[in-house]
Design a protein around this nucleic acid. Structure first.
Length: 560
RNA sequence: UGACCCAUGGUGUAACGGUAGCACUCCGGUUUUUGGUAUCGUCAGUCAAGGUUCGAAUCCUUGUGGGUCAACCA
């Protein structure tokens, strides 16, 4: 009964340490803080799994807080999509909150800051302010407005708020130090004037708080114990703490910001800006294009919430930059679907197979297992007849003995049906094979228990009956980029590495008739081919399937 | 020529001063009415150099490499 000691990631270690140091377990509180300006992607999923996972582990509240302080970019559409994605991933937030809920409090605190002589109104141009900011290696210089009187600052800030001043003409800045090593500490902007309608507060405000001022204070208001964000916010921590210090009551909990490395995936990009470009410039069909690493794209592609959670959990949380092999994500979806997806037969690149010794008008119903990995999955019926489609690449006139599929004068089993032997081919004027003629062993029917049915033949291939098959469209997806880290090249634009063959559409595939009743999003294993689901575009009279992920193919590998 | 962060097999992560482990990938064997699954196995790692210590992936120093920071974005 050896107790398995699960290793903790560094965030959990920090929490355990805080607990040991006296933090009450019931003070633990987390939040997921998306900006509603785009769709969630697999990288966000890592953060969602982290935060909500901690909530579950410690039985602590986790808020969903929309960081909505920039009305020029944020929209209700994104709010809705984000909520939908989080729910779909299987998580529940304690409270649905918005930074904009705190605009009044943030404003009041800003006045407090001014009164403490820790903030001032600057009416220089943004170019001037940028100029004075210096560079990482050169200190900045003070604004001429830095020593404006408190009364004047109060009055000007009031005017900013009331809409008496022109957009972009004035900002409120924290008075910290223009010589700080950390550029963020060089009198950062706290408020700017923006005459823009906000998706929640409408036209109530003419000024909007900046991220740094908003985020930490929102954490404080919500009493978030551990505010987790990605590595690039590490330099912000100093400012986060500075702002907090200005409003901290001295009694309640002071939130703690910690940073972890965002999760990157090979052969794709993960920045919202770049994903937006792919959408807007038409490289993909939308945010939910099955090639996109967005939650909605993966969902449409056929990835399950569990597979994404499993991926996030096994990939882990750490502080170093990473490019995680997309094979790990693929492993988790295959691993799940192997146990849950019903097996069916579909032929993607059909060629006719005629069983010459099978009676012309005979039809029979064969029984097939739905899923050998799930004994409760039952069986289904498949019609069989004289003329079938098989996969083109499952036949070769001649081939060496490593080729286990159908070849002339050799035998192969038709999955769930009979053993056949190929005898001849019919070719068209171009030498293309149009028909393969074969004979079947009547005694070899699958599951019949006969001696012949137990014969071992090396190959088994899938098929559909021409007369009964249903024509369908099948979309085969490949990685969106040809480069492992498309945005890691400083000299080149990431779009130069777009894979021109990331989508292959087959519009005359044939599927077995049992699939007629399949609903949108239903998932299947097309035997020997891969996992597929029914796409949103699917119609009753024209079904559309997405290939989620192919099956491992050691034959293809061998042939490389 | 700054500050801060980071460095463990091909990839992602553990080991918290005491046997470098797990997963994915790759490669090979067995089983198989899916060249799938399952199962067994192989290959493969502490960035470098010093130092502290009985003992260093772990602590210290220096170096090297990578990342972040100069939006009225988050």
């Amino acid at each position: 009964m050896a107790e398995e000691k699960k290793s903790l990631n560094f965030i959990e270690q920090i929490i355990e340490e805080d607990l040991k140091l006296g933090l009450n377990l019931d003070k633990l509180r987390f939040r997921f803080p998306p900006e509603p300006n785009g769709y969630l992607h697999i990288g966000h999923a890592a953060s969602i799994c982290l935060n909500f996972g901690l909530g579950i582990k410690y039985n602590a509240p986790v808020n969903l807080r929309f960081d909505d302080t920039n009305p020029t970019k944020e929209e209700q559409e994104y709010v809705d999509a984000i909520k939908n994605d989080i729910k779909w991933l299987g998580f529940e937030w304690t409270n649905e909150l918005y930074s904009s809920d705190y605009f009044q409090q943030l404003y009041d605190w800003a006045i407090l800051l001014i009164k403490k002589d820790k903030a001032y109104v600057d009416n220089q141009t943004s170019a001037q302010i940028a100029e004075q900011k210096g560079t990482p290696t050169k200190v900045g210089t003070d604004s001429p407005n830095r020593n404006r009187s408190i009364d004047d600052n109060l009055e000007l800030f009031e005017k900013m708020k009331n809409g008496d001043l022109k957009e972009g003409s004035h900002v409120l800045r924290a008075k910290i130090s223009m010589t700080a090593n950390n550029m963020l500490m060089r009198d950062p902007i706290i408020y700017r004037i923006l005459y823009e309608k906000h998706h929640r507060t409408g036209n109530d405000w003419n000024i909007y708080p900046m991220y740094d001022w908003t985020h930490g204070e929102s954490d404080y208001i919500e009493q978030v114990s551990h505010s987790l964000c990605t590595l690039e916010f590490n330099p912000h921590r100093e400012l986060y703490n500075w702002f907090l210090k200005q409003v901290y009551s001295g009694e309640d909990l002071k939130p703690k910001q910690r940073e972890f490395a965002r999760r990157n995936l090979s052969y794709t990009v993960m920045s919202k800006r770049k994903l937006l470009q792919l959408v807007e410039e038409g490289f993909v069909k939308g945010w939910d294009d099955p090639r996109m690493p967005t939650i909605s794209g993966l969902r449409r592609r056929g990835y399950t919430a569990k597979s994404i959670r499993d991926f996030s959990n096994t990939a882990g949380i750490a502080k170093r930059d990473n490019v995680t092999d997309i094979a790990l994500l693929e492993f988790h979806i295959k691993n799940e679907l192997n146990k849950t997806a019903p097996r069916v037969m579909a032929v993607l690149y059909p060629v006719k197979l005629v069983i010459t010794n099978y009676p012309e008008n005979k039809e029979e119903i064969l029984i097939a297992e739905n899923n050998p990995e799930d004994e409760n999955s039952g069986t289904r019926e498949i019609p069989f007849s004289r003329v079938l489609y098989i996969e083109k690449e499952d036949f070769r006139g001649q081939a060496n003995k490593k080729f286990f599929r159908l070849k002339l004068d050799k035998e192969v089993r038709l999955k769930n049906a009979y053993i056949i032997k190929a005898n001849a081919v019919v070719k068209d004027e171009n030498g293309e094979i149009t028909e393969i003629h074969c004979t079947y062993d009547e005694e070899s029917k699958s599951g019949s228990g006969s001696e012949a049915s137990k014969r071992k033949v090396k190959g088994t291939i899938h098929w559909v009956s021409v007369k009964h098959a249903v024509k369908a469209e099948v979309r085969l997806y490949d990685r969106l980029f040809t480069e492992e880290a498309p945005d890691a090249h400083k000299e080149k634009d990431f779009k130069e590495f777009i894979n021109s063959e990331s989508l292959k559409v087959i519009d005359n595939a044939f599927i077995e008739p049992s699939l007629k009743t399949a609903q949108i999003r239903d998932q299947f294993q097309f035997q020997r081919l891969g996992y597929f689901n029914v796409d949103d575009d699917s119609k009753k009279d024209k079904m559309v399937f997405n290939r989620t992920v192919p099956l491992r193919d050691s034959w293809a590998k061998q042939n490389k």
